[in-house]
Design a binder for these strands. Structure first.
Lengths: 348, 348
DNA sequence: TTGTAGGCGTTATCAA
DNA sequence: TTGATAACGCCTACAA
C-alpha cells in the first residue's frame, strides 16, 4: 500500500470520460447501457493501466467489506485446522471474499483483542471455531455480528453451529466391524466428558445392540486419548480370556497405541485383531502398518457449511438459524478383516 | 458490518465538541494538548458509546491498512502451516495488524485471483510461503508490494527470504549420533533434488568426515520420503553384513518406516539401532515407540522472522534485503543410545 | 448515454 | 486549545 496504485480517476482521465462512466461500465451497473465505443475504450485503458478497484473505498461506501474473520482456539497444534480454513476459504473466494485467520491459544485476552481487531476492520461476519468438538457460549462482543460456530455447539440461542455427527460416527464404526463379522468387540473411549466420547459410545453401543450383540461381548474402557493411553487400554483388553476380535479406538492416536500393544502380544493386525480408529489423521492413519481403517472428521465440510451459512446470514437470505451435525466418511484401509483369521490363529 | 456502528461524529456530538477534537484526543496526536476537562469528557463518552474507530476509513485516509496477506501453496495438507501462521500472526497482532490467510493448492489461477483479492484490499505487504523448502520466483503481480518469502528461496533479487538451515540440520543429526558413540551410520535421504535433501546430506557427511568416520562407514540410500519408502530403505540398510548402528532419516515419516523394518528384523530401537528423524512432526515423532529423536523445522520462527522483516520493509526501516537460514532445535527423545547395546546384542 | 455532487468515517492542514 | 474543511477512492442518486 506504499506506492500509490492507479485509481478510477486516472482511468477516467485517460479514457476521457467521467469517473461515473468508468464505475458504471466496470461494475456493469444494471439499467445503465454505455455506448459500445466508450465501453471498449474504458475497459481497454483500465486494463492497460492495470486498474484494480480499492476495496477499502468500496467497502466504506457500500458498508460491506467482503471479508470474514475465522477465529479459533488453536490453529497450530492440530492438523484439522487447515482443512477447516480451506473449506471456509473456498466458499469465501467464490464470493470474492477473503478471510482473516486468527488464533487465540485459549487465552481470553488474546481472543478479546483479536475480535476487536476484526470488528475494527468491519468484517461482515465471524466464524468462531473450536479445534475439538465442545459446547461454548457466544462471546458478548459478537452479539451484534453475524456469527457461526464451527465444531462447537453454541449454547447461546440464535447462533447457528455445525459439528461432527459423533453418534453416526460411532454407528459407522460398529457397522464396519459388524459387517466384517465381529461379534466380540472392544471400545477404547476417551476419559473426558465431551460430546465426542458420549456420542461415539452411544452410536457404537446402539448399533451393536441392534445387531443383537450381547452386552457382555462389548468391553468398554476409557483412557487418555493418546498412544500411551491407547497402549495400556488395548493391552488390558487383549489379555482378557475372551478377548475381543476387534477394537474401536476413540481416535487414531489411541489406535497407534493399540497397534503397539497388539504387536507386543504377538497379535497380528488385522488377522488376530481388527482395529478401527477415528479422525483419519494424516500421517498417522496412513503411516502406520497396516493402514488404519478409520472414520474421518468432516472438517473441510464443516468449514464449507459454516461459511455458506455465514454468508447467507450476512445477506439475510436464510430464515432462521439451523444447525447441523455432519457425518464423516469411513476410510477403509487394511486394519479390518473378518475374525475367522483370529480364530484360526487361536486354534492353531 | 450490517448494522451501523458508532462513529466519531456521534462521539463528537454527544461530547459537544468537534470531530477534530475527538480525533486529536483519541489518537494522542503529538503536539496537541487538550484541556484536561475536554479530554476526560471525550474519553468518557467514547467509552460509554462503545466507539471503535473504523479501520477501513482510517486506512483509506492514511494509506496504510495494517493488514498483511499470507499466501501459501498448501495450508491444509501439512501440519507445519499452522506454526507458520501462528508465528506471523503473533508479530502482526503486536502491531495491531491482522493477517489474511489464503491457500492456493498449487493452482496458478487460484493464486492469481487470491493475490488480486489481497491487493484490492490494500494489504501492506505479503508473506509468500511454501510448504516445503524450495526455490521459487516472485509472481509478477507482487513486484510492487513489499514481500517476504517464507520457506522458499526467492530467485528474484531484492526479495528477502527465510528458510531452514538444512546443512546445520544435517550436522546436528550427525552430532547427535556421533556423541552417542556411533561410527557406522546410514542415511535415508529423499530422492528429490531439493534443498532439503542436498543440504542435509552435505551437513551430515561433512560432520562425519570431520569426526574421522571413514566414507565406507556411512551408507547413503535414497527413497520416497514416506513410511513405505523408509521401510524398504531401512531394510536394505539393516540387512547389510556390517549394518549401521544408527540411521538418520530424511524425515519422521521415513523414520516410521524404519521403525517397522527394525521391528521385523527383530532389531530393538535404540539398543540395536538408533534412529534420528527430521521435522518433529506432531503426533508422529511423539506417538511412535520409542519416542523419536528428531530435528525440528523452525516454522514458527520463520513466520516470526518473515513477518518482522515484512513490517520493517513496509515501514522502510531496513537497509537492504537480508535473507536467513534458521536452525531448528534437536528434540531429544528415546530413539538414540550408544551403540554398545547393539554390539552386545550381536555378540550374544 | 454521460456527468455532477454528496457522502461513507477518518486524518490532517490551516485558521481562529 | 479547538474547529472548519479538504482529501482518501469509490458508489449512486439525480441532473443534463
Amino acid at each position: 500500500m506504499k506506492q500509490r496504485r492507479v485509481t478510477i480517476k486516472q482511468v477516467a482521465a485517460e479514457a476521457g470520460v467521467s469517473i461515473t462512466t468508468v464505475s458504471h461500465i466496470l461494475n456493469d451497473v444494471p439499467g445503465v447501457r454505455a455506448n459500445p465505443a466508450t465501453r471498449q475504450r474504458v475497459e481497454r485503458t483500465a486494463a492497460r493501466l492495470g486498474y484494480v478497484p480499492n476495496r477499502l473505498a468500496q467497502s466504506l461506501r457500500t458498508q460491506r467489506s467482503n471479508t470474514i474473520g475465522l477465529i479459533g482456539d488453536e490453529i497450530a497444534t492440530t492438523p484439522f485446522a487447515g482443512k477447516l480454513i480451506l473449506g471456509a476459504q473456498e466458499v469465501a473466494l467464490s464470493r470474492e471474499a477473503v478471510v482473516f485467520v486468527v488464533s487465540t491459544g485459549y487465552q481470553r485476552d488474546v481472543e478479546d483483542r483479536e475480535i476487536e481487531e476484526l470488528l475494527r476492520r468491519q468484517v461482515d461476519g465471524i466464524l468462531y471455531a473450536s479445534m475439538f468438538h465442545r459446547k461454548a457460549e457466544l462471546p458478548p462482543q459478537l452479539a451484534s455480528v453475524p456469527t457461526v460456530f464451527v465444531n462447537a455447539e453454541c449454547t447461546t440461542p440464535g447462533v447457528p453451529w455445525v459439528v461432527p455427527d459423533e453418534v453416526a460416527g460411532g454407528r459407522d464404526a460398529a457397522e464396519v466391524l459388524l459387517s466384517a463379522g465381529h461379534r466380540r468387540l472392544g471400545f477404547i473411549n476417551n476419559i473426558d466428558d465431551i460430546p465426542a466420547s458420549m456420542g461415539r459410545l452411544e452410536g457404537f453401543s446402539a448399533r451393536l445392540a441392534e445387531a443383537g450383540v450381547a452386552a457382555d461381548d462389548v468391553a468398554v474402557v476409557a483412557a487418555e486419548s493418546d498412544p500411551v493411553g491407547g497402549y495400556a487400554a488395548a493391552k488390558k483388553l487383549l489379555i482378557r480370556p475372551r478377548r475381543p476380535t476387534a477394537i474401536f479406538c476413540f481416535n487414531d492416536r489411541v489406535a497407534m497405541g493399540a497397534y503397539r500393544a497388539a504387536t507386543e502380544l504377538r497379535l497380528r493386525i488385522p488377522e488376530d485383531v481388527s482395529i478401527v480408529g477415528f479422525d483419519n489423521q494424516e500421517y498417522v492413519a496412513d503411516g502406520i502398518f497396516p493402514g488404519l481403517t478409520t472414520i474421518e472428521l468432516p472438517h473441510f465440510d464443516m468449514g464449507v457449511w459454516a461459511a455458506e451459512h455465514l454468508f447467507n446470514q450476512i445477506e439475510g437470505t436464510n430464515g432462521d438459524a439451523p444447525s447441523a451435525r455432519l457425518r464423516g466418511p469411513v476410510i477403509h484401509r487394511d486394519s479390518v478383516t473378518s475374525p475367522t483369521g483370529a480364530l484360526t490363529a487361536v486354534q492353531r
